[in-house]
């Protein structure tokens, strides 16, 4: 039922784990759903938590001045693409 790719599924699992989203199953996060504001409703504290987890898991450092950081955080799909690209 989920159309997550394997890499997106792994990232979804990471998000659920680090953000205390224990009432959501990782496969419930739709790849194109907005992570912040509407949709999943994450906030700026979560952004920092995600950045830290991604740095530890994949060695990808996220920086605010990068073009595209904001776009990367839009959805599960864009975040995964960003991580894949910078690995």
């Amino acid at each position: 039922m989920s159309n997550q790719t394997p890499a997106e599924a792994a990232l979804a699992e990471l998000l659920v784990e680090v953000l205390n989203l224990e009432d959501i199953e990782p496969e419930e996060i739709k790849p194109e759903e907005l992570l912040f504001g509407e949709g999943l409703g994450l906030d700026s504290i979560d952004a920092l938590e995600i950045a830290l987890a991604i740095a530890q898991e994949h060695g990808v450092e996220i920086k605010a001045e990068d073009e595209g950081t904001k776009e990367a955080f839009a959805t599960l799909r864009s975040l995964n693409a960003f991580v894949e690209q910078h690995k």
Binding site: S44, A51, L52, E61, I62, K63, A64
Partner: peptide
């Protein structure tokens, strides 16, 4: 006002 570790370090 840097937020991410990379921005703070640079």
């Amino acid at each position: 006002r840097p937020m991410y570790p990379h921005d703070i370090l640079s």
